[in-house]
Structures are given as C-alpha cells and as structure tokens.
Design a protein around this nucleic acid. Structure first.
Lengths: 350, 350
DNA sequence: CTGAAAGCGCTAACAC
DNA sequence: GTGTTAGCGCTTTCAG
C-alpha cells in the first residue's frame, strides 16, 4: 500500500517534550540545555544532550520565533535595473561575503529582489510583517522608496554603499549605517597613478550620477585634477556598452587625451574595445585605469586592466557584522558606518 | 526621554484577535476571511476586511507556520567553487527568474550557498528542520552529498540542470525532476552551423566532465562529428583562463583547425584572446561558436561571439513552477522534468 | 454559516 | 537549579 500520509518524515519530528521525557527532566530544563545550557547542572545537561542526539531533535523554528520574536533571518534587498544585475559579478561576490558571515551567525539569508515600483508594496508588507530581524540593502538610488520604508518600520538596517542623504532623512531619525569602500580615495589613487606616469590629458568616464559611488569617484578625480575641463568628462551607465559609447565621445571631443580613469571595470572593458577599434594603443597612446578589480573582467581585457581593487566580499561580511552588533546590543544603538580601503592593482593598461 | 522600549513598532502590531474584535466577529471568522473568505457571508467579509485595513493587520507568519506546517519559503541551494560563482553572470540570471516566480507565488527565497563539505552539515540541519517547503538545487557535481540529503529527508526538490544519476538513486526512490536546456541539441546546432560554413577541422573545448551540461554538449558535438579525433578535443573549466589554456593546447596539437565549438561563453572569450595573441584571424582563419549567450560576455568579445542562447531566466521560473506544482498537488506526485530549447545567435565570430 | 475551544512547539516568568 | 504554568498568534475541528 502506497503511503497516503503526506510527508511522513515531517510528522515524525520529535518535540522538546519528547526530549524532556526521554531525559527525565522538564521541558523547561530541556529548553535551557538546547539554548546553551546555562544554569543547569552538568549531569542533567548530559542527559538532555544525549536525548537530543538519540531522537535527532531539531528545534522548531516557527515555535521559537513565535515566542522570542526573533526570526534568525536577515533580508538582503537589491533594487537594481536588470541590465546591471544581469551582467555585474559585483553582486555575486557581495552576497557571497554576506552569506558566509550570516552562516557564522546562524542566520538565514532571505533574498528580496526589487524591480519596479510595484515591488515595493510587496517588500513593505514583508518587512512590516516582521519576518526578518534586519535588512541589508543595496544600490539605493536617490529616488528609492526603500529608505522611507525602512525608517517608517524601524527595521534594523545596514546599507551597502553610502546612501544619498535625502532631505526627509535629515530630521531626528538616527542615521542608518553603511559600509562602503573609499571611492573617493581610490579614485585619487587612480588618477595620481596616471599623473605619476607623466600623463597630462587625463579624462574620466563617470558612472550614473544617481549613485554615490560614481559621484565620489568623480570627486576623487577632481581632487587630483581640480582644473580638468568639461570636455574631459563623459558619463556611462556602468555597462560595457555605456563605457564604449563614452569612450567614443571622449575621443571625438579631445583627440589629444593620453589617459582615462574609468569609473568601473565593465565600462573600462568597453572603452578598451573602442580604443582598439580606433587604432589607439594602450597604454602607449592612452593609459587606462578602471575601478573594482573584478577579476573576470580586469584580467580578461586586452590588455589586462590596471584598476582599483575594493574588497567586495569583505564589505559584505562587514555589513552583517554591523547588523548583528545592532541586533545584539540591547540598547538599539546604531553602530558607526565603515569605509574600507582600496588599493591600486597594476596590470598592463597603465 | 529616549525610548527604552525595544522596537515599539513591532510590539504594536495588531493580532487577528484585534481584527476580530473590531469587526465584531470571532477570531475564527476573521481567520477565514484573511485566508480567502470562503464560506463566510459577504457582510461579515466586508467588516473584517475593513478592520484589517484600518488596523493595518499583517498575519504573523511564525504563528501560521506553527499550525499549518507551511513556511511559505523555498531554499535555493548553490554549491559551487568560488571561481565560478564569482565571475559567472549565469547565477544572477537564474536567480532573477526564480525570484520573480517565487514572488508570484507569494513565497520567500532563502539563499543557501554551499562551499565546502563542512557546509553540508549546516544545510542538512536546515532542511531537516523543515524551515522551507521545498528546495531548488543547482550545480550538482557527481560527488555531491546534496542529492543524498534531499532524498533522505524527502524534501520536495527541483534541480537546475540534469543531475548525474548516481547508482544509489537507481533504486525505488522517485526521480527528482529537473529543468535544463537542450544542451545536446544546442551543441548539435552549433557544430552544424560550423559545418554549414564549410569548416572541416572543427575542434571542441569542453567543460569539466563532472557536469552534465558539459557532457551533453560533448555528446552533441559527436552527434554531428562522429569521427572527430581526440586531438580536436580539449577540456577547460568554464573559466576565461581555462578556455585560453585549452585553446593554446588545441592550436599546438592541430595547427590546421578552422573552427572551434566552445562549451561556454566565458571559455570562448579566453579562446578568442589566445587566437588574437597568436595572430589567428576570427572568423577568417578560425570560426568560433560559444554556448550560453551571456550578453555581457558574448557582446563584449572581439569579435562579438556567435553562440547558443539558452533562456536562463525562463528556466529559473520553470523550476519554481514545477516545485509549486508538486507542493500543491495533494498527492505528492512528482512533475516531469523539462528540457527547454536553445537557439543559435549569430554575431561576428562564426 | 459562525463561534468556542483546543492546541501547534517553544520560552520565560514565577514558584518551589 | 528545576519544574509549573502561561501564553506567543494562528488555524481548525467540532458544536450549534
């Protein structure tokens, strides 16, 4: 006879009650042991542990959450137009770091991908439902509704990347901490390197102006080259194609440029293609420096790309640590934001 | 006075009880309405709906799970050595599709990244804990422990990519359904295209033999070219570098080759680089066809890559649909596996 | 069709 | 230290 009982395994799972009975203690004691065993005499601890093993007991998460109001889960929210998430290894790495650190804290990663405005309602409902203990949010654009939602529901949050500080946020609400790399410093490093190479006409291909990373990198460029003319600046959208287009514009506007600092590696890869197509030698005629050091991109370009490395995975881990700090500090005090250092990686392009 | 009350918002969330009271009905009726309202008279339905709105009621997931034993969550398990997940846009796209479809089903995506053997214990505990209703698993290698775990705990599962059917699985256990693209057919299409171009010495750069996709693509290559010699075959690891290395070997082993079918776009990109370095013209001297059609790679290569497109996002959605089918069929019957079609995308490389 | 009541499995006061 | 006892918020028989 085939089993008509649905999911037999599932119904057979032992409860704390069973563990307690087997160990000859009360449910309360069993619970204490399962949760660390503080304040329970050693012999009893051992008995309970044994019973747990023998029964293969696994705590029921839902029951625990119901009473503790802790979910043991963190939401990672990524709001990004398709074209970037589809093609940028950046997210994979960041998430890898987050996943690792979350595992270390025994917390689950709930992935929330936001695409259109319609999605915000769903996310709002989810956060409002208190299904997660905290939130890690990425790629905030100036016009995002997310920060407002997060503030409204007071969900403990850490941002990935410095968020645009909106007017609404300027009030009495405590600032949400973020983790970001030193975009401005990294950009300075890149441009200084180009200067030290003797380059005089150094252009910049910037990223979209609604992202603070792009803005900060522009800032670094201007820190080193305060007098750079407008004709030396073009804007891309962080994609390969965008970089190619921007490079074309730049070449048309000032044919005498001898270096380009590109705001990310993807765009740099597009820029290199255009330079090659136009017969411009890299680095002889034009030196190129990127940003990110995405190995899959920077090492694969022709020539390999000199770029600014940021520790994306480390930043992911850091985000989790900050969040956990906040969650575990009974006070609800916010930890400080963290800016991680960058580093110039020399390859052949500059 | 600063609020010492932790998370005030969270403690203020209205319960079903409150909704019922406000609507002047019992908790049971309120529950029925919240869950669809079947078998409740219209006026009462309206009253309850109104109360829900006014109070901003959101069901407590944990409480619901506790009694229904349904989590409304699905785990996505990815077991992959770092080097691939770090650099392959493939996963981002697959996950995007899954996320979309999961949203449509009001289910959450719990991401489980598995790295070493040590991680399996954690994953096992998680699955055994019944924290998710089902599992979507990827990148199964022949030696993975995951299939065994999944079988042991009878977690409803759908695989991404045809799994290697191990001996242990050959028993009475029902086969786990999978979603995969027509790797073999796609490979045939690629090679046939090369043949139709008049190429006579067509080589193949294969992927790692512990992945069925690589195996199936080799199969397709041999379907069209049953007599192809061993010297025409090299193996890479699906990375850019691996593709470059394999291309080098191939060129050394048979300098007269006039075409290469490469098992994925990343490797093809590496192969193209080596061809360029050695002064071999593409497609004049050697025509190249890839597999995957990852836009960020295939469109960025020099020359742009002719390749086989697979609908990665669609496959992700399909996986969710199959899983939901299984979850909602009271019978526990397994749906059939699905193989999706591929398509040749012509660019400049062949 | 609706309400009363019995838990789901666990933790946390509160007694002993 | 350890056990007893209330629930956490919800669904679901079972009466009416």
């Amino acid at each position: 006879m085939p089993d008509l009982i649905p999911d037999p395994q599932r119904d057979v799972r032992p409860t704390l009650e069973a563990v307690a009975a087997r160990a000859g203690v009360s449910r309360a004691t069993a619970s204490r042991v399962v949760n660390g065993g503080a304040g329970v005499r050693q012999p009893l601890v051992d008995q309970v542990r044994k019973a747990v093993d023998e029964l293969g007991y696994i705590p029921n998460h839902a029951a625990r959450t119901l009473v503790t109001r802790r979910n043991g889960a963190v939401a990672v929210i990524i709001d990004e137009p398709e074209f970037r998430i589809f093609s940028d290894p950046f997210f994979s790495r960041q998430i890898r770091g987050i996943s690792r650190e979350l595992n270390a804290h025994d917390a689950q990663l709930v992935l929330l991908l936001v695409e259109g405005s319609g999605d915000f309602e769903r996310v709002t409902r989810y956060l409002a439902g208190g299904h997660v203990d905290g939130v890690l949010a990425f790629s905030l654009h100036t016009d995002d509704e997310l920060p407002a939602i997060i503030r409204r529901f007071r969900v403990p949050t850490v941002y990935g990347g410095r968020p645009e500080r909106s007017a609404a946020e300027a009030g009495d609400v405590p600032e949400v901490p973020y983790v970001d790399c030193d975009n401005r410093g990294g950009a300075r490093e890149a441009v200084s390197h180009l200067v030290s190479l003797g380059r005089r006409r150094i252009a910049h291909i910037a990223g979209p102006r609604d992202q603070t990373s792009a803005l900060d990198r522009i800032g670094g460029y201007h820190d080193v080259l305060p007098g750079a003319g407008r004709e030396l600046m073009a804007e891309g959208d962080f994609t390969v194609e965008g970089g190619a287009r921007a490079m074309g514009e730049l070449l048309d506007a000032c044919p005498d440029l001898d270096a380009v600092f590109v705001s990310n590696d993807m765009m740099a890869s597009g820029a290199l293609r255009v330079l090659r197509e136009r017969g411009v030698r890299v680095p002889e005629d034009v030196a190129v420096v990127g940003f990110d050091d995405m190995a899959s991109v920077a090492e694969a370009t022709e020539p390999p790309l000199t770029t600014i490395r940021q520790d994306v995975e480390g930043m992911g881990r850091l985000m989790v640590r900050l969040l956990m700090e906040r969650l575990n500090s009974g006070t609800g005090a916010w930890p400080e934001s963290v800016v991680t250092p960058t580093r110039l990686i020399r390859r052949a392009s500059a």
